[in-house]
Design a binder for these strands. Sequence first.
DNA 1: CGGGGGTTTT
DNA 2: AAAACCC
Length: 712
Amino acid sequence: MENSEDEAGEDDTEWKNIFTDPTPGSDDNMIPTPAHRVIVHFDLDCFYAQVEMIRNPALKNVPLGIQQKNIVVTCNYVAREQGVTKLMFVTDAMEKCPQLVLVKGEDLTHYREMSYKVTELLMSYCPLVERLGFDENFMDITEMVERRLTQTHESHSYSFKGHVYNHINTDDTTGKHPRLALGSHVAAEVREAIHSKLGLTGCAGIATNKLLAKLVSGTFKPNQQTTLLPEDVSNIVSCLSSLRKVPGVGHQTAKRLQALGLVSVSDLQLFSLAELVREFGSPSAQRLKNLALGVDDSPVTPTGAPQSLSDEDSFKKISSTKDVLEKIQELLKSLLERMHKDGRQPQTFRLTIRRYSATNKWFSRESRQCPIPNHIGQKITSGSTDSALVQLLPLAMKLFHKMVDITAAFHLTLINVCFSNLHSRAAATGKCSITSFFSHSTSPRKSQSYSSQSQDDFSQSGGGQSMDHQSSPHSITQRTVASKNVSASEAVLHGFTRKQSPAVTVGVSHLQKPSCSVVRLNPDETCNIAMSQLPPNVDPEVFKVLPEEIQKELLSPAYSNSLSSFLPGKNTSPQCPSPSNPLPQTFTNSQNLNRKDAVDELDSSDRPTTWNPPLQPLGTSTAIHGEDSMTEEELSFPRSSDCEFPVNVDPKVFSELPPDVQKELMSEWKQHKPVLKAPSSKKPGRNSVTKDKKTGGQGSQANSLLKYFKPS
DNA sequence: CGGGGGTTTT
DNA sequence: AAAACCC
């Protein structure tokens, strides 16, 4: 029988050679006790609601829900007492709790920042911290515990902090599981630190692997912790009401298991491994079986800086190219600012859409991605986000056209823009080399102190995203988008957008906006312009769809001028300098990380090895050498001048862009022409850097991570 | 399901 | 590139 493993704990054989018994003589237990890992799972209580209650303490005593679109994604415990649950429709939630106060939570900025502060705090105790979403972290505290074990002389202190699963009276547990007991103390200290330094409460689960730590952490729900002893593993695992509750068993896997007749955890425990292998293949089958047994040897993998940054929005309907363009522009704008703050240079851009479908309304996203030309990537990292936006828009529209045939009707319900393949420029050679301070002469990063109570917002021009909170819970306020001083190109882009978002709803309200529906243009708006006047390269089908003012501009002398700027001898006006795009406050300065409390008991060897002193990451590669990141798919420029566009620039896409964007693009192309080389050479192998994403490059990754942490 | 993110596996 | 998983 293959399920005859010892159920009282995980299979320890693989750990014997990794964690040898540190104190052979002091182990009073003659039974060979495995050198167990000690894993903690931290889970913040209703995280978004807690963040909002910190931002606006007036919300602390009211039933509070965090709203995204038509959904209450989470709520505080006051609201839960009245029947509100996570992921409940707003209408249902209001029925349950008419006094429910809702705060918009579509903009994740504050949650993301607080989330990384929590991770940072955990990392100050030990480097093995793995994030799971914004509100959960795993920590492998095995080494901390082993160290405390050697330093603790009194066995009477091997008692537990907090709950012990299945043990009402914890007296009978004292002394029997010193590592887990010490783990519970560590967890309690860390939770207290999270509370005192960040003002957040949460649960913790302490166990011998990630699976069990996660399963046990929610046993006592708000703001408590629970330790799981090995003798209760089978208990907790078989108490799960369905296989779906097993982390790692998702909807699809649960369905496939059900097709095999398996619904409960014990069904899976007892099921033939051979048959499981037939369904899932060997690795997955083994993993599933192990999960059902509470066995999980997966390591706590330090998460480090994120592998991708994305920004998305869902909506009832987008069905015109113009609206697609506007939405992508809006998303890209905020994504570019985030990317710039990150400091790394993205090598890949991806556009994802979700199409409406009556059946299968959820599900089914499609995406296309492309490399980001180096010169654009450098714009991003250097902070020329306006210019980067203007240059990324055509790329995005190209990707869009790869997915959507605009000659037929289409109906999108979601758009996502994503940067991935993020490259640090930090030199991996020397550790904290001063030389890496060489930087572009671009604006020095502000290392202003960051006030967590700052009301400052980013003036997100995109509609619908409100970052403010409101002092009075029941008031409704609206304001128009503040128009800041913007570059010329931004002005056009804003004008392009204006119709759609006349105002941003701000603040807290239990009354809902009528809807988030997209304002449609009058269909006859565009009728009166003679198509025969269209400039060359403008597709009439696309033209028809553009806003009137854009159409007029396309037909105006200004447009001809910009076209003719391609001709030899004529110069386009240079790009607007725009020195003053007010950047949101950065939170780059992490020098004053307060780690003293955490370090008090650690010797220097405990310092996280992946944690490097913060370096100014601004070193911009100074040379644009001939080898850039372009592939055969990239823009390239024919020497022969019988075509106005670089090859691979779709005239259709180009014509869809606002005139100012077109101008800036053409100006860019002119500037880059001499640098670019013929597209012939397919990149030779590039030394195959063997992207070992996590384990390798830790130094640079840790460096980047700091961007996600605010200075305290 | 839904939302606005993420990662890993196929 | 899609689909699975997580929150």
